[in-house]
Amino acid sequence: MNVTTGLAISRHRDYTGAKIGMWVFLLTELLLFGGMFLLYSVYRTTHAEDFHYAAQELNTLVGTMNTLILLTSSLTMVLSVATMHAARRKTAIGLLVLTIVLGIWFLVNKYFEWGAKFEHGLYPNSEFLLQHAKGEILFYGLYFSMTGLHGLHVLVGVILLTVTAFKTAKRPYEEVVFGGENAAAMAGARLALVDASGNRLWASDTIDDSVEKVSVRLKYLSVPRRVRKEDYALLENAGLYWHLVDIIWIFLFPLFYLIT
């Protein structure tokens, strides 16, 4: 008996589709931040001098450190994808965890950096800030909202990478399911594994009316010839997201910390 199941396997495994979806999503993220960069450029032009003074208050050392941390995390991220393609699962997971740790480190730094600003009375709508020139109020309004939104993205990225780490730690599998009429047609039969010389290695129970569906799960060993990029679309997409978060910081850093 022939049962065609090719469709059932390939249906949710569209690697290119997953990549297209992710890239389009990244585009929306760029536009989300784009709105803020637009505001920044307008206010920077109209209040150039105030921005100049306000920027001197920011801690360039912490900013530089965070830039280095994020850049390194992008490196570990891309290495994680590369080692996974080379079927070195444990190394890949290790590198992924390292990326997560670096992301958390970035957030901790950010926490202390913001905390110090708050201690000096420097936060949106604070009395201290409102005494300053309008351009400085705008600078800090933008600083807190832009780095805040970016920090939120780092947090989401850390969560996403954690989920990815758990999912990638499992071996990929494909499942062929015979359900409905196909399962009914199998009534009374058994499934068996047979070796080359015809010996039965394993056999299932008889499939009777109580069987709703028959599922064959193919789990892949982590050896190079079994590694297909299709199985790691999530890892690659999580990596893409992480790089985007990194790239946005690459622009935030000079715009707020370096241009004074």
Binding site: Y43, L138, G141, L142, F144
Partner: peptide, 13 residues
Amino acid sequence: FGIGVFDPAKGGD
């Protein structure tokens, strides 16, 4: 939070 980017009183436009 009163960040001020659209509030004319704080320089926003």
